[in-house]
Design a protein around this nucleic acid. Structure first.
Lengths: 364, 364
DNA sequence: TTGTAGGCGTTATCAA
DNA sequence: TTGATAACGCCTACAA
């Protein structure tokens, strides 16, 4: 049995053998081969074996595209992510990919780099390529009116972020509650001048976290001060950029809740560079609890969002809708966990030697 | 013009309108629509407009799958990555994704988690889904004999890693040369007992880096000592795991070249935890220069591999082969850069205040 | 410049 | 239990 050099079937063409080739080789009709492929019990054992063997020797590969054309569901899920250089979204992407494999789906991936134009292109491209559904973490400033028609008729799950005016399923963390608890912790540690740093008001997620921040202030009867709110890009540089304004406040802040960990770390580094002892002199809490938060100096306190689980849940929801054919929007909120480390200066009011993980699942 | 609720065409079925629908709506034949789609100049301007408008109102979406079936190239590239929790491979994946978008390809992604069985499954799945080519960073312990038939007839580029016995195109960094220069730097700084930490002998990449390490020793007339070589997993834990043996050597080591940065950082943390002052008492150089290397304390010296460029080059090579139809294996080696930071104790022999980036491109 | 007639690889339907 | 035939949506001739 000398293996053919490059596995080409009998067909000379593209090098891919078809069920017709297999049928020919096994001495049956292509219908029979199709039955074998779909695991039908109608086919005789002997026939099945002949066919299977023919497939092996020909190096036959099933052509899902053709099957899809005929009517089958497509088995491809699109995954459109705004920023893969952010470890949080990478973690989410891993969760998505993982869940797809479990469900025998295969994910297209696209990194929009927060570029709405590119996002439009890739979404269209994914539809053209036959994606059965979409997991979407939308880019900032997405024009909903242009995106909406591209999405019609297919199930979409927005994950982590969501667009105002785009009615799809949503999988997101309990942002408001997480921010509320983090702020409350800072207050309980003695802080009263707490800044809110990062993101832009147009981001729905920020609105949620900001709402939690204000709620906690209210609950503690601390008046809200707009001069403590800073809008910046949600990256390292953004966090660093606010330091001049932050340190020049007439009534200085003593702590900050940051939109996410990346901003928090940027802020931490910049503060350290300008001589502020983060943790002792200034408390910081981030959001997301990315891997790096454990390794900064001092270690960063954070509202932990299980990014991988978020991705997994999104795909599971999508697959469920795909299976049932019912694309009715549905919202899943995932609980957050407040993780206290050294960066928020709990040392002032509590022993801070070990990592006190306030296991505070909010709902159910 | 009241937009139809969910963009369904006239066809009742799956909700997707076809060129026939468009043709009908525009009052032309489907061939004409096809010509419009392919941007042919044969069609009258007025007709083209009518067709374009019909497509818009019907929410028509091009069905690439059908076109592929008819004979066109598929426009899909598979990207099979061994470990997406390693930031290095994430960076590479971003490069791959980016280059795909530029070339109007769309990448399937799969994370094999170093699991050869899973890898076999996803490769098969990608073929079934019609991937035109593959960018592969193979899992450890991949059984070449089983993988090879699945790859036949399609262009494959192995990136970063490569499998002994699998003859495909390759895009890789100049591992041997990079390791040689890193080791030479340690030697020039006065070290003579230099450990080599991480990876397993079966990994081709490690063989290359190890060869560079030995070459540098030879060039400096330092006898090779096998007790200084440690095989471990290529993750944080692996780096940490060698500390007991490393510190118990009869003739202690004073420095280490690590297989990659993740191992190096694991080692660094574990050494720090056991009271060794990395940088002053013990020199460490990693490999890859991941983002995190800049932020460890002390900052990690590393042989910089431009992961994103590696991914980009791989896709470019693949696209070139796809375009030409010539799948003849080709090898591209990318130069590395030795980046000196605080972790390798250059302070002993040189001023180390600023980041001395030894810009030492090896070839052209 | 536009229309007609296959055919790509698969599955569903109906006969044999 | 197996085989023939007609779609699925598109593209490439070729004819008008």
């Amino acid at each position: 049995m000398n293996a053919r050099m490059d596995g080409q079937g009998t067909k000379g063409r593209g090098g891919r053998s078809t069920i017709v080739d297999v049928a020919h080789r096994a001495g049956v009709s292509k219908s029979t081969v199709s039955l074998v492929l779909s695991g039908s019990s109608l086919v005789a054992e002997a026939t099945r074996e002949r066919v299977t063997e023919a497939m092996a020797t020909l190096g036959y590969i099933y052509h899902r595209g053709a099957a899809t054309l005929r009517g089958a569901k497509s088995g491809v899920i699109g995954m459109v992510i705004n920023d893969l250089s952010n470890p949080f979204f990478v973690e989410m992407a891993i969760g998505i990919e993982e869940a797809c494999q479990v469900g025998a789906y295969i994910p297209f991936i696209a990194n929009t780099v927060e570029n709405p134009v590119r996002q439009l292109q890739v979404v269209r491209s994914m539809r053209e390529h036959g994606a059965a559904g979409l997991v979407l973490s939308p880019a900032l400033g997405t024009p909903v009116a242009e995106l909406k028609p591209l999405l019609s008729g297919m199930p979409v799950v927005q994950v982590m972020r969501r667009l105002a005016g785009l009615k799809t399923s949503i999988v997101a963390p309990e942002n408001k509650d997480g921010a509320r608890r983090a702020t409350a912790h800072l207050i309980a540690s003695g802080h009263r001048r707490i800044a809110f740093v990062g993101g832009f008001d147009s981001m729905v997620v920020r609105q949620d976290r900001f709402a939690g921040y204000r709620l906690a202030l209210e609950e503690a009867d601390i008046p809200f001060d707009a001069s403590l709110v800073f809008e910046t890009m949600t990256n390292y540089a953004g966090g660093g950029a606010v330091v001049p304004q932050l340190t020049n406040l007439r009534e200085p802040a003593t702590a900050a809740l940051c939109f996410n960990d990346v901003v928090a770390i940027g802020l931490m580094r910049a503060l350290a560079a300008s001589g502020v002892a983060v943790g002792r002199e200034f408390g910081i809490i981030g959001f997301d609890d990315i891997e790096e938060a454990r390794h900064t100096v001092p270690a960063l306190s954070s509202v932990a969002v299980n990014a991988r689980a978020l991705g997994t849940r999104a795909v599971q929801l999508l697959m469920r809708q795909l299976a049932s054919g019912d694309f009715e929007p549905e919202t899943i909120l995932c609980p957050t966990t407040l993780v206290i480390r050294a960066s928020c200066g709990t040392a002032l009011s509590a022993p801070s030697n070990s990592e006190a993980r306030t296991e505070a699942k909010s709902k159910d």
